[in-house]
Design a binder for these strands. Structure first.
Lengths: 356, 356
DNA sequence: TGTTAGCACTCGACGTGTTAGAGTGCTAAC
DNA sequence: GTTAGCACTCTAACACGTCGAGTGCTAACA
């Protein structure tokens, strides 16, 4: 027995493929149902509308096309989009103008990962006109290289956690009065000795307790430091999703009643679902999830396209866009590809391979 | 000759005031034009609808009310909103529930001004359901206390600029190879000596040139440091406006066609106009600008309410919300008041008065 | 003199009916 | 296998009529 999609392939001859592609391309551009006459005129298919009608009727039977109502044209089904993405779509390299536009976003000198992430979210939503999502770097596995405590005033110090992915997090912490600079240096060295080579994940677990017991003196101070390191693992406790271009929902008039828009916004704001989705997306270099293929039923008429970003060949996180099923998949995928390699370049430049 | 608004006061007897207030309150709640019968029934005004009609007719002549069309009810004019804000509105203290809700936003431990600003933008848009804007701290006048360079890897160092407003900015900079820890310390001390007591604004001006000439050796390195300090003055070159809750525009159905929404979004994104507006707003502790009172003609049907935040009694910046002229001014003002004092408290806790 | 009931009038919202046009499926001819 | 022709269907757009909310005006009332 053949698998379902192989059967499809056999049923679809050259001509049907051409017509299907024409319908999808047109619908992606215009958002309007498309009729047989339009295809025979606009899309360079030298057949009469009647013939095309027959073919379209077949395509409907096969589940690739749908009719909103009797006398309207046809629109692509979810199955058609899936087929389009898998077989029909040609992902072209980004043209120079687009590529430069993206490049220009990243040209401002950035020294921290957070900054890069924010910029990436911005460039994604600006170029695709969809909502962008980025899963922040999953730093749990990154290895601590050094910990440095720098006293800046009488009561405050900055704690720098440096990992193999570069600077992870700096946070201001309160220090006991009268703490000498030398003592800070001493604590820095102690912590570096104890923790270097461990992952941030380790710090979260029992290692911390162990360490506190060792450092009897100033133990509150030390535990402050440890908890600061921990918060750097899951930043701000908000599940590490950055959204961009949520304003763009107003550009989806076909899909959005005010009521729906509100629900959708609410969905985006809880972020939990997005987090799980993006977390899963880290497993595939690219992924396209169309309409009802999404696990969240609220996304039955939205599609999600994701990619990943790496540092030194290791996947750090994922990013992508969310938009109506009628989206320009080819363009979105090529933009994601370009952004992905841009991110990889930038993040790798953060990496210090020469140390140690 | 009396001023215009004093004339208004004389013309408006107790009863007219009551009716006017009823119209405005009702319209702020419902967004629907309100008729004479509704007022006589709902708002505890013991008069027949006919009498109220006469009064409303007078109020229309005086320019306080408007009719969208002949047989609709009436809606408040810009003049009415102005009058309401100046005379009628009772700004109550925030009830405990609301106050706690705001407080909870600020409860996460925050160590940097940027973080606080982001949170504030969020809490403002969440509680008012309008779009929030915050002018980032105007740090040009803040005085440098210390500059510290911390080498973190072979090629990178973190530059900490500490001012009287606490930590201003840390940025990663590239350092020449083989730079010793001691040398970093030396440079830190040198810079602290040269620059402490100066404002960030000074650094931008000729002082910088002067210093470069002095430090002949490694002059490129030093100029890197100075430019890093400079960028901390105007962060990221994006005019220092933080927006929150831009999604909320979809909650203004009465005002927003898709076309209008797009224009408005575009307006928000250029930020230039907002920057000037917020900059001006730093001069007044509170301000309410209604519809056409705004300088930007695009805001003819929007109102802007602003307040300021301070550190040690000195105004650092302004913040506010932008929404339809039909907004609950009383509530917005009281929220802004509460957020203002919250911000002042938090920022003051950053201030180290005991040093030096 | 201020208040109110009554009434004619206005105008938008809404439902209905009609028409034009786009698109379809089917049939028969090529 | 392809296409022309035709009857049919459905929507969008417009005109029309009705309903109801709200008004202004007038006359009666306290």
């Amino acid at each position: 027995m053949l698998r379902a999609d192989e059967v499809d392939d056999m049923d679809l001859n050259e001509r049907k493929l051409g017509i299907l592609k024409a319908v999808i391309d047109d619908y992606i551009m215009t958002g309007l149902p498309i009729g047989s006459r339009t295809i025979s005129k606009k899309h360079g298919i030298e057949l009469s509308s009647a013939t095309i009608r027959n073919e379209m009727s077949d395509l409907e039977d096969l589940g690739f096309l749908e009719q909103p109502h009797t006398s309207a044209g046809r629109i692509p089904s979810t199955k058609a989009y899936r087929f389009y993405v898998d077989r029909l779509m040609k992902v072209a390299k980004l043209n120079a103008a687009e590529a430069n536009r993206i490049k220009s976003y990243f040209e401002t000198r950035m020294s921290e990962i957070e900054q890069v992430i924010e910029k990436a979210a911005q460039v994604l939503s600006d170029t695709t006109h969809h909502i962008s999502m980025i899963l922040k770097p999953q730093l749990r596995k990154s290895v601590i290289k050094r910990i440095q405590l720098v006293k800046i005033t009488e009561h405050k110090a900055i704690l720098l956690v440096i990992t193999n992915a570069g600077l992870v997090k700096d946070s201001v912490i309160v220090v006991p009065e009268g703490l000498s600079y030398d003592y800070c240096e001493m604590v820095s060295n102690l912590l570096t000795n104890k923790l270097s080579g461990k992952t941030l994940e380790d710090v979260e677990s029992d290692l911390a307790i162990c360490l506190i017991e060792q450092a009897r003196t100033n133990s509150e101070f030390v535990s402050d430091i440890l908890s600061a390191i921990e918060t750097s693992v899951e930043p701000h406790g908000e599940r590490g999703i950055v959204l961009g271009g949520t304003q763009n929902i107003i550009e989806y008039p076909e899909y959005m009643s005010v009521e729906k828009a509100k629900n959708f916004i609410a969905l985006l704001e809880t972020k939990d679902m997005l987090y799980n989705m993006m977390k899963k997306a880290t497993k595939l270099e690219f992924s396209v999830t169309i309409g009802p293929e999404n696990e969240a039923y609220e996304l039955f008429d939205m599609s999600v396209v994701t990619a990943t970003y790496k540092i030194a060949g290791k996947t750090l996180g994922s990013f992508g866009v969310i938009g109506p099923t009628r989206m320009d998949y080819a363009k979105v995928v090529s933009i994601l590809g370009y952004v992905s390699s841009s991110l990889n370049d930038i993040l790798s430049s953060f990496l210090e391979t020469d140390d140690e």
